[in-house]
């Protein structure tokens, strides 16, 4: 990192974060939100409520579950529980990103505020880009990206909602498929720690395995068991390499 870049202001880095809206991940997320619009329009949820939940919930899987609960007329406690269970995964994601974002002087309230903008896309994007940003400017960079991404998608939902007549099935299918394929490619591409490759493979195998064993808590268990096994395997491998060297 050269001196000149380090001396740029936080505002300049906020602006660089904003420009992240013109990136492949932001583009794919926007396409996913087009898909979400068609889902909510078919479910008969008014556009104001869809825009509101886009801003206030943000995580797309949580919103899909929320919409499912609203459609089936679930009570508040049941909906809260279902959305909570789907969102526990946000905790380790945020916990893994926070040490990369903060400096010793970053106030906690700022991190609490910024954490709202973390969902899978912003997490994958930040884990990839943030190490190339000078440490003191990382919070500003992430704020620029996160706030722009949420605001743009709220606007997108408000506009596109009125135009999503039924898509041709092939288009709808491809829109849905973009999300998993994008996550897969970008996690592999952006991994900077060997443990990420192992955890990715264990999680892919663990997802269906635990869905079959414990369908209610599959994602959580797959993450905890798969992630812990991956960590153990990678650690053992690392120690063996150190002994051998």
């Amino acid at each position: 990192m050269n001196r000149e870049e380090d001396e740029q202001s936080s505002l300049a880095w906020f602006g660089k974060g904003m420009r992240g809206i013109f990136s492949l991940p932001a583009f794919i997320l926007m396409l996913s939100f087009v898909g979400f619009c068609s889902l909510t329009a078919q479910a008969g949820i008014p556009v104001q409520q869809v825009v509101f939940m886009t801003g206030i919930v943000w995580a797309l899987p949580a919103k899909v579950i929320l919409v499912g609960s609203m459609m089936s007329g679930a009570n508040l406690a049941a909906a809260f529980l279902a959305v909570s269970l789907s969102s526990v995964r946000l905790m380790p994601m945020v916990a893994a990103l926070v040490p990369e974002l903060r400096t010793s002087r970053t106030p906690t309230w700022l991190l609490l505020f910024l954490s709202h903008f973390i969902a899978i896309t912003a997490w994958v994007f930040a884990m990839e880009k943030v190490p190339k940003v000078p440490r003191g400017r990382r919070a500003a960079f992430f704020a620029g990206f996160g706030i722009t991404l949420v605001a743009t998608n709220m606007l997108l939902v408000a506009v596109v909602y009125h135009f999503v007549a039924d898509f041709p099935p092939i288009v709808a299918g491809c829109l849905f498929f973009l999300t998993p394929v994008y996550f897969l490619a970008s996690i592999w591409h952006s991994a900077r720690h060997p443990v990420v490759y192992v955890a990715l493979l264990f999680g892919l195998a663990g997802g269906p395995l635990f869905y079959w064993l414990f369908p209610e808590f599959d994602i959580l268990i797959a993450g905890l068991v798969g992630g812990t096994l991956a960590w153990l395997v990678e650690r053992l491998w690392r120690q063996r390499k150190e002994v051998g060297a």
Partner: peptide
């Protein structure tokens, strides 16, 4: 990091 990645992979 491993747990977070495995969670996303399961999704």
């Amino acid at each position: 990091r491993a747990v977070a990645t495995a969670l996303v992979a399961a999704v």
